[in-house]
Computed example of a mutant assay.
Amino acid sequence: MTTTQPLTTEEAAEAGLLPASHWQNEPLPEDEDDDGASTIGSFVSSTASLSESIFKYRTIHGRTYHSEIGNADSWEPNDAAHIDAMEIAHHNHMIAIGHKLYLSPLEKDKVQKVLDIGTGAGSWAIDFADEFPNAGVIGTDITPIQPSWVPPNCKFELEDCNAEWTWPDNTFDFIHCRMMFGVVTNWYDLFRQAYRTSKPGGWVESFVSCTTFMSDDGTVKANSAMSQWAKVWNAGGEKTGRTFMIYDHDLQQKGMEKAGFVDITVKEFYIPVGVWHKDKELAEKGIWWKMTIEADLEGYLNYIFNVVMGWTPEETAVYAKHLRKEMNDPKIHAYFKARTVYGRKPHPDEVPESN
């Protein structure tokens, strides 16, 4: 990502952003464990060891990131700590949509070739390959952090989804992408390429969450750490040219419609954050989403907050403490929304002739 100048005071005020120093002046309760439920243990990473002579990573405030090559870049770290967090996030995202890998109406015996864009640690691709042993599954990412021990029908390739895709037309029966905010430079172009490389009758599916924490009873207070969360992320996305507001601007459905997909289906999800909800299923979603954020909160914040928005690591660390406190407070009834959108590439006889 191209590093940009921090927002001016006027720009920050217009965006509703509090100064980074604000959080150092806000008192924190002293009778609670600062870590909350974040001490949940570390998943064992099976990531392959790669020679530094082949892949040289950037180090930013002690965390490693994919080396910026052309337009290929990521705001998420690629080190072992974050790979562990990705494993937790994978399970969390399945719970969010009903303990499922996908929602598209796939016919199992007809799925032969599958693409997972922005595969990260590769968990989704591996699980899908296990569920569809007769399908070839390709997971792509710009950084090689995927494990070496995978199902025989699964493989990983280095590919930048923002560049022109290298696969031929009509290749895939199913294309999947999940939580790609802050990554994609042009969502309309992403779905154009997904349409081109899908087989007629193939499905494309995208899941993404909204960054805004809300409450129906006013317990997410103005100027709280939770209320500031979306403001900082969204401002950072504006500065890098890779929006975090996919949900807000309905870019999944709009992108699929413009690309030419049909049978587009939108599924909305209500997700509490934390331990407050009385409904068992929603409480499970809330706990897992909180655990996902806490699994590597500093890693999630490091690039956007410190590099893009110009905070110091110390200021970000104090903000993170406030956020943890709020997420672990059962009196704060925070939630956000998420959305899965899937659509089908029509067969040639379904496409109206152009005038």
Results as ranks from 00 to 15, higher is better:
153 N>Y: 07
153 N>W: 08
153 N>F: 06
154 C>R: 06
155 K>L: 10
156 F>Y: 11
159 E>G: 01
160 D>H: 08
161 C>P: 04
161 C>R: 05
162 N>Q: 09
163 A>N: 15
164 E>G: 04
165 W>R: 04
166 T>V: 14
167 W>D: 09
170 N>Q: 12
171 T>R: 06
171 T>S: 14
172 F>I: 05
172 F>K: 03
172 F>T: 02
173 D>W: 04
174 F>W: 07
174 F>S: 01
175 I>P: 01
176 H>W: 12
177 C>M: 10
178 R>I: 05
178 R>V: 06
179 M>Y: 13
179 M>V: 12
180 M>Q: 07
181 F>N: 13
183 V>T: 14
183 V>Q: 12
184 V>F: 02
184 V>K: 04
187 W>P: 01
189 D>H: 11
189 D>G: 09
191 F>G: 04
192 R>M: 09
192 R>K: 15
193 Q>R: 14
193 Q>G: 12
194 A>D: 11
195 Y>W: 13
195 Y>C: 02
196 R>F: 10
197 T>S: 15
198 S>L: 15
199 K>T: 05
200 P>K: 11
201 G>W: 07
203 W>I: 07
204 V>E: 05
206 S>R: 00
207 F>V: 06
208 V>Q: 14
209 S>K: 05
209 S>N: 12
212 T>V: 14
213 F>P: 02
214 M>G: 00
215 S>D: 11
217 D>C: 07
218 G>Y: 10
218 G>C: 10
220 V>I: 06
220 V>L: 10
224 S>Y: 01
224 S>G: 02
225 A>T: 02
226 M>C: 04
226 M>I: 00
227 S>H: 08
227 S>Y: 00
228 Q>N: 05
229 W>V: 02
229 W>T: 00
230 A>M: 01
232 V>R: 09
233 W>K: 03
233 W>L: 13
233 W>G: 00
234 N>A: 03
236 G>T: 01
236 G>C: 06
237 G>E: 01
238 E>C: 03
239 K>N: 04
240 T>F: 05
241 G>N: 12
241 G>C: 08
242 R>G: 08
245 M>H: 00
246 I>G: 03
246 I>W: 02
248 D>C: 00
248 D>H: 13
249 H>L: 13
249 H>C: 10
251 L>G: 00
252 Q>M: 12
252 Q>S: 09
252 Q>G: 04
252 Q>P: 00
253 Q>K: 14
256 M>C: 03
258 K>G: 00
